[in-house]
Write a protein that binds this DNA or RNA. Structure first.
Length: 421
DNA sequence: TCTGGGGTCCTAGGACCC
DNA sequence: TCTGGGGTCCTAGGACCC
C-alpha cells in the first residue's frame, strides 16, 4: 500500500502557524511580484477565487471580503516543508518527497500487522503537533489510487478525519465512480476535454475504455494510468535524482527596453543557475537564454526568442556562465520592444567529479576555488554579498513584495516575538 | 498600471550511419 | 520504368505535474 500525504493549502497554512488569528479567515498567497494567487485557504476558495487568478483583477473582492494577502515567502515554506518531511520519514524509511507539500510513502507489508488508518491519524497528529501544519492522508494499492484516496480525505474531512483508505474492491469502484475524469492525477486540460467529448465523465468510465483507444490517444502514459486506476501498480517510489535542467526565469516588475538592462538581469540569472549547479555538484554543457515581450499586451508589437548554445567546456562557474549567457542574449536581443520576461536554463548537466576536460579550451580551474569561497560567504552573510560586476550592482529593480511575512524559522533576527503580560 | 516559476516524460519525424 | 533494410540520435512540440 502507498500513502499520499499532502499539506492542506500549504503556503497559507505556513503563514497561519505564525499568525493563528487568521484561522477561519480567508487568506491568499501571491506569486512573485505579487502577480497571481498561488495558494488559497478554504474560505478564499469558497469566495470563488481561482488558482492562478491575477491579483489585480480581484483587488476589490479582496477588500470587500477582508481577504488577508501574503507575498510568497519561500524561505519560510521551504524550511517548514523540510520539517514536515522529516517527521513523516519517521513512519517509514520508504518515502518519495514529491513536491514541496506532498510525499508518497510506501507501507507495503505493514497492512498485515498494522491498522493503516491509525498510522494515517498518527502522522496527522505528529505533523500538526510538531509544525502546526494540517495534513490529508490517502492510502491506496497504487500511487494513483493513493492520490484518489487523498482527494476524498480532503473533500470530506469531517467524515474521514482527513484520512481515507481504499483497501477493498467496493471502495475502489465507489471512489472511481465519484471522481471526475479531469480530476485524475495525470489527466490535464487537453485530455480531460477530449475524454468528456466522447462521453467519459468519471474515472470509472476511463477504466472502461479499450487499451487500444487509450494507447492511441494518450500513449503509454495513459495506459499506465489506466492500470493504476484498476489497482495494478505500474509506478514505484522514485529515488531523489539530480536535476536534469536548472532554470532561473523571471517576469519583470516593469518593462525593459535597453540591452544593458536585460544584460544585468540575465547575468544575475546565470549566476543563480551556476550557484544551484554547484550546490547539486553538477556542471552544464549547454545553456538556453530567452527573452519575451508582454504577451498580455496584444496592442503592442510582440517579440520572443530563445537560443540554446553549446559551451566549449563543462562549467559551473558564475563568471563563465554569465559570460556565455550575455553572449547568447546579444544574439537574440532586438531593439524596439518592451521586454517583460527573461530566463536562463542550464542543460546537459554532468556530475562534477568525472567531467570531461577539453584539450585546448579548458575552464580555468582556479574558479572552483574562487566560487567555493563565494558560496561560503554568501551562505554565511546573505545571498547577495558577493556578486559579479556584470550583475545588478546598482540594483535598480526590486521584486514587488508588499505583504511579505518574516523568515520566522531561518533568521534569528526575524524570529517570532512573544509578549508576556 | 497590474497576469509566477520550475520541472518531467513521451512521441514523431528528420538527419544520419552502415 | 526500376531505387533496401536496419538502426541511432537529436529536436521540437505536446502533455502533464506542483
Amino acid at each position: 500500500m502507498f500513502a499520499l500525504v499532502d499539506c492542506n493549502n500549504f503556503y497559507v497554512s505556513c503563514e497561519r502557524v505564525f499568525e493563528p488569528s487568521l484561522n477561519g479567515k480567508p487568506v491568499v498567497v501571491l506569486s512573485n511580484n505579487d502577480g497571481c494567487v498561488i495558494a488559497r485557504s478554504n474560505e478564499a476558495k469558497a469566495l470563488g477565487i481561482e488558482m492562478g487568478a491575477p491579483a489585480f483583477k480581484f483587488k476589490r473582492e479582496f477588500e470587500e471580503n477582508g481577504v488577508h494577502i501574503f507575498s510568497s515567502n519561500y524561505a519560510l515554506y521551504g524550511d517548514m516543508s523540510a520539517r514536515v518531511m522529516s517527521l513523516l520519514n519517521e513512519f517509514t524509511p520508504e518515502m518519495e518527497v514529491y513536491s514541496i507539500d506532498e510525499a508518497f510513502l510506501s507501507f507495503s507489508g505493514f497492512e498485515r500487522f498494522h491498522d493503516l488508518r491509525q498510522i494515517g491519524i498518527r502522522m496527522r497528529t505528529s505533523v500538526l503537533k510538531g509544525t502546526g501544519i494540517p495534513l490529508s492522508v490517502g492510502f491506496g494499492p497504487t500511487k494513483v489510487m493513493a492520490k484518489v484516496a487523498n482527494r476524498i480525505a480532503k473533500k470530506f474531512p469531517d467524515r474521514t478525519e482527513s484520512v481515507y483508505l481504499i483497501d477493498t474492491q467496493e471502495k475502489m469502484v465507489r471512489a472511481l465512480k465519484w471522481l471526475k475524469v479531469e480530476d485524475i492525477w495525470g489527466i490535464g486540460r487537453q485530455h480531460g476535454k477530449r475524454l468528456k467529448g466522447i462521453g467519459v465523465h468519471t474515472a470509472w468510465d476511463f477504466t472502461q475504455l479499450s487499451d487500444d483507444w487509450v494507447k492511441k490517444h494518450m500513449a503509454v502514459v495513459g495506459l499506465r494510468l489506466k492500470r493504476e486506476l484498476q489497482g495494478i501498480p505500474t509506478l514505484d517510489l522514485e529515488e531523489a535524482a539530480p536535476k536534469k535542467n536548472i532554470a532561473c526565469t523571471r517576469s519583470f516588475e516593469q518593462d525593459y527596453h535597453r540591452f544593458d538592462e536585460l544584460k544585468e538581469r540575465v547575468s544575475t540569472f546565470a549566476h543563480i543557475c551556476a550557484t544551484k549547479l554547484r550546490k547539486q555538484g553538477s556542471r552544464c554543457r549547454s545553456l538556453n537564454v530567452f527573452i519575451m515581450s508582454n504577451a498580455f499586451r496584444r496592442d503592442r508589437p510582440q517579440y520572443q526568442k530563445s537560443i540554446t548554445v553549446d559551451l566549449p567546456f563543462e562549467t559551473n562557474s558564475s563568471m563563465e556562465l554569465s559570460h556565455f549567457a550575455v553572449d547568447a542574449l546579444r544574439k537574440i536581443y532586438r531593439e524596439g520592444y518592451a521586454y517583460k520576461r527573461a530566463g536562463v536554463i542550464v542543460m546537459e548537466l554532468a556530475p562534477e567529479q568525472h567531467s570531461q576536460l577539453g584539450i585546448w579550451d579548458n575552464t580555468d580551474n582556479r574558479q572552483n576555488t574562487l566560487f567555493a569561497v563565494v558560496d561560503r560567504l554568501n551562505q554565511a552573510l546573505g545571498r547577495d554579498k558577493v556578486k559579479l560586476a556584470s550583475q545588478d550592482l546598482g540594483r535598480t529593480w526590486k521584486m514587488r513584495q508588499e505583504s511579505l511575512s518574516r523568515r520566522y524559522t531561518t533568521r534569528l533576527s526575524e524570529i517570532i516575538d512573544i509578549y508576556c503580560r
